[in-house]
Simulated assay, not measured.
Amino acid sequence: MSSYTGVNIGKRALVTGASSGIGAAIARELAALGIDLVLTARRRDALEDVAATCKGVKVEILTADLGRPDAARTLWDSATASGPIDILINNAGFGYFRRFDEVDWARDAELIQLNMTSLVALARLFVDSHKASAERAHMVNIASTGAYQSVPHMALYAASKAFVRNFSEALHDEHHGTPLSVTCVCPGGTKTAFHAESGGGDYSRIANASMNSADFVAHATIRAMLGGKRTVVPGLFNKLSCFGVRFLTRRFASRIASQVLGQPRFVLPARSQP
């Protein structure tokens, strides 16, 4: 953590999707820096477990289902009731590993709401709250290496992350030279519950070997955020993949993605209830 020494950072962070995986790891990383936390996800018991690992800071837990319309506004009002938010980590999201026509519309509608609409709503509320402020503020939006190409069997998920990447990079450029910094993070495969919940996991040897831990991604995320980076792709293999895809035709890149990810599992798990 010595690389963070002397950096002027905010005092309070809102982390969405903080109940497990990358969100939980980011929460612990921020706590180690002395940042007070507002953690949100759908499951309070899981949030309480994460909060117990965030030592030495104030941790507020807010349950919210950002897959529902208008949930972002309610969450923001609750999060800011006890003080301003200096760091926004838009991490909440989900995907499924299936053909588009094999999944019902309700699941797609929730994915669009969670991965894009609620993210944009929180971004707008955060930006508006810092328009007149001279204090440093940081927004981090979690995308994916899937943002760099089409991904068969994850068509809507990858498309949503391409949206997040383009949106985040534009915001970064709009606020260049201001106290507000926007960073997009594009993780590749990460060792979290995402794969089981998406119905994936029957991946190739390359995909399995290139996976990073959530802690690795979280550390790269906070380092990039504090450095004011525009976009970061954690992991050497992921960096090479995202760089190399620009030299391929889009059709060939899509075919390679299919080979690397393998075939979907037979059963797609139901979405867990809050």
Score class of each variant (00 low, 15 high):
Y4C: 09
T5A: 14
T5N: 10
G6I: 09
V7I: 11
V7E: 12
V7K: 11
R12M: 12
V15K: 07
S19D: 05
S20M: 14
G21T: 07
I26S: 01
L30S: 01
L30K: 00
A41P: 03
R42Q: 13
A46V: 09
L47C: 08
V50F: 06
A51Q: 07
A52M: 03
T53L: 09
K55G: 09
K58C: 11
T63W: 00
P69Y: 08
R73H: 11
L75I: 05
L75D: 01
W76V: 12
D77L: 07
A79W: 02
A79G: 08
D86W: 02
L88I: 02
F94G: 11
Y96K: 04
F97G: 03
R98S: 09
R98I: 00
R98M: 00
D104M: 06
W105H: 10
R107L: 13
A109Q: 11
L114V: 07
S118C: 12
V120T: 12
L122R: 02
A123H: 07
R124G: 15
S129N: 04
S133P: 01
S133M: 06
A137Y: 00
S144Q: 09
S150A: 10
P152G: 08
M154P: 02
L156A: 13
Y157T: 03
S160L: 02
K161W: 09
K161S: 04
E169K: 03
A170E: 04
A170T: 14
D173W: 02
L180F: 05
L180V: 11
P187H: 03
G188T: 04
G189E: 07
T190W: 00
H195L: 15
H195Q: 15
E197A: 15
S198V: 02
G199V: 04
G200Y: 01
R205K: 15
N208F: 03
T221M: 00
T221E: 01
I222D: 00
M225H: 06
T231K: 10
V232T: 15
L236G: 10
L236C: 10
K239Q: 14
S241W: 03
S241C: 06
G244A: 10
R246M: 12
R251V: 10
S254N: 13
I256N: 05
I256K: 05
G262R: 00
Q263N: 13
S272E: 11
Q273W: 02
